[in-house]
Structure formats: C-alpha cells, structure tokens
Simulated scan of single mutants.
Amino acid sequence: MGKTAHVSAIVWIAALSLAAWLWLLLCQGFFWRTDIRLPDRTAPREWPSVCVVVPARDEAAVLPASLPSLLAQDYPGPAEVFLVDDGSRDGTGDLAHALAARHGGLPLTVDSPGEPPAGWTGKLWAVRHGISLARAREPEYLLLTDADIAHTPDSLRELVAAARTGGFDAVSQMARLRVESPWERLVVPAFVYFFAQLYPFRRIGRRGARTAAAAGGCVLLRAETAERARIPDAIRQAVIDDVALARAVKGAGGHIWLGLADRVDSVRPYPTLHDLWRMVSRSAYAQLRHSPALLLGTVLGLALVYLVPPLAVLFGLAAGSAPTAVCGALAWLVMAGTYIPMLRHYRQPLWLAPLLPFTAFLYLLMTVDSAVQHYRGRGAAWKGRTYARPDAVADEG
C-alpha cells in the first residue's frame, strides 16, 4: 500500500510538470519563438540626432572588436560617441583614443566620472556621466550600448527607423552572444531562452502590458523619455539595470520594444564554465530581490519544470510505472521542442535540446551560489566592486 501511494505521488508530480509545460507552451506569450526581430520600419524624412553612450571598465581586451564598429556607423543624421572610462586599470581610455585615430568615423569623446558615490553602481554612474555629456548636444535619441557589443554599419540607422516608425520610446535588442567554446554552446542559448521565458518579448511590445524588460547591451532611448523617467538616477542601485530601465520607462508612460538582434553581437568570450558561472551568479540573487522565499520558490520551480521530466522517465522505467514515464517523456519532449528555435537562432546542433535539464540544473546551482555569495558579503561582485542590497545602502545612509 505504501509503495503504491509513493508511485501515485510520483505520477502526480510528473503530471504536474507536464501541465506546467503545456501552459508554458501555449500561455506564456509564445516565449519560445525566435521571430521577434526589429519591427517594420521606414526611413524618416529627417534623421534625428543620436548620442551613443558606452560605459567601459577594463575593456581593453574587447574594445578593438567593438568600438570601431560604432565609429563606422553609416548613420545619415548627426551622431557622436561618448565612451565613459569607469576607473579602468588596463588603459581602456587610451586605447579608445588610439582606435579612433586609427579608424576614424563618428566623433569620439572619452571621459571619466571618477569613482561612483554610495548608492550607485559603477556602470550606471558612468551612464549618468555620459548622458550629461551628451545633453550638451541636445540629441533626440541616446544609444546605450556596452563596450563588448559590436554593431553592423547599419545598426544605428535601423534602430532609429524602427523607433520612429513604431512610435517607441525605447528599442532594445538582445545581442547575439558568443557561442564558440563547448560550455558556451551548452549554456549561452539557454540563458537567452530562460530570459525570454521570464520576459516574453511579444508582451513587452504591447501597449498597456505590464511585462517590461530590455537588453542592456543595446538600448535606443528617446532622450526626452529618459529625462521624464529619470534615467539613470531612478535606477542608480540596480544591478540588473536593463530590466530596471525598461520598468522605469514603462512607468513613465513610455512604449518599449525588445527582440532578438541580427545586427548586434557580443564579442566577450566566456570560454570556461567558471566564466559563465560568474556571469550568471553575480546577479541571479539580485534578480530575486535577495528574497529567501523567492529563492526557494525558484529552486522548486526549476526542479519541477526542468528536472522532474527526465527523472520521471527514469523512475517510471525502473518502477514499471507507465503513466509516470509517459508524463515525464511528454514534458521532456515539449521542453526540448520549445528549445529548438533558440538553438537554430544560435546555429547550434539540435541534439543539445534534450540536454536542457542538465543546463537548467547548472543554472539552479548558479542561483543558489549567488545567494551563498551574497550572504558571505561577496554578492553582485564585478570587476573589483561588490554591491550591497539597495535597502542596506539606504540603512547606511
């Protein structure tokens, strides 16, 4: 009797996992589709002025592959690049000057704001300084882009055309991340897949929808909207600044759009699992608002959705429980099927799709490690800086 009850409980858990996947497949904004690209657009009669703001801290390794692509933009209107050197120790600022002298193109200003005051992340303090410099030019748009992002020559032109045609206050593209090492192939497409699952791109672009997110590597922002939303002052403590920016813009009545990029690529390498682990764990617990309850819910949710299907198949086969094995296999099939479009987007082999439970398990461990590092006082650490929780900063103040 006890064994039968045990098997029955496993069947119900497997069935619940399958139900969760059917709901995700049909009711979560079709997050798994990868056809959300820059919307229909036409060239404006007069091209507005744009200032490009690039915060950079110790980026000498990637700058030669990214900065020349910005300087080479074939934008028909007035455009200028502001690179803000956030206390680099590797000669980032000098290298930027040298690259501009070598490649020419758009005008480049390199400046530094000094160390950020308490309550500011280094990146957002640099963005604030860059926007302050840009305001002297009275641009209509700001392009906020990271120092590891390379743009095709028509990237800025297409972003502005999309913003103007669609009436968007912010247009953001999820840069295509590097997938060259074995660990990058396993982990990186899943990173974008999980992001889209949390923030379905289709919902973000709908007027009146509550879902808000952006990809910090490439955000074209109307300057007037940035001022109205108090960007970046309103989000100065945000470690996950792109989502915070999108929420601030929507909160100020702005219309935003987010999709996958065709013209924007990240050139930053994450060759080892350790590199990818640091990239995820440094901000995962901040995403959960440093809440133990949300952490527990996330771990249980990841286990139910991603780990139960393969475990149910193994248990069902071992225990001779066909319902358990069938529910697990169907859930695993739906999971792998929804992952295939993202693998195709990244031009990766489809045999990686059934391995998604293993990748999800890695993300689960990274999330738990993020919380552990936070409580050890090493949370949200990046390039020599560690950021406290916003409420901790407020308490100290």
Rank of each mutant, 00 (worst) to 15 (best):
F82Q: 01
G297H: 12
D85W: 00
L220C: 06
G316E: 03
Q28W: 14
Q287I: 11
I256V: 06
R378S: 08
A381V: 02
T386S: 07
D233W: 15
L245K: 06
W125F: 15
P269A: 08
G217N: 05
S8T: 12
P310H: 05
L99W: 06
H6R: 14
E396Q: 12
S8K: 15
R207L: 11
T272R: 06
V54F: 08
E158P: 01
V179E: 06
S49N: 09
A252K: 03
A98N: 01
L70W: 05
L144E: 01
D40N: 11
A126R: 02
R206I: 09
W125M: 08
R228P: 14
E80M: 00
A371H: 00
G316D: 02
S172C: 08
F30I: 15
L343A: 09
P323G: 10
A43S: 13
Y339I: 04
T272H: 02
Y285C: 01
A284I: 03
R135W: 05
F358H: 03
M366E: 03
R102N: 09
A293V: 14
K123N: 10
G259Q: 08
P349C: 00
A61F: 00
R178E: 02
A19C: 08
Y363P: 00
P78C: 14
G377D: 06
E138N: 13
L220K: 03
G301Y: 01
A244M: 05
V62R: 11
A229M: 03
V393A: 12
G29M: 10
A101H: 15
A163E: 07
G320S: 09
A9Y: 13
M1G: 12
L333N: 12
G77E: 07
V243G: 06
W47N: 13
W183H: 07
V187L: 15
F168I: 00
D85E: 02
V11P: 03
A162W: 10
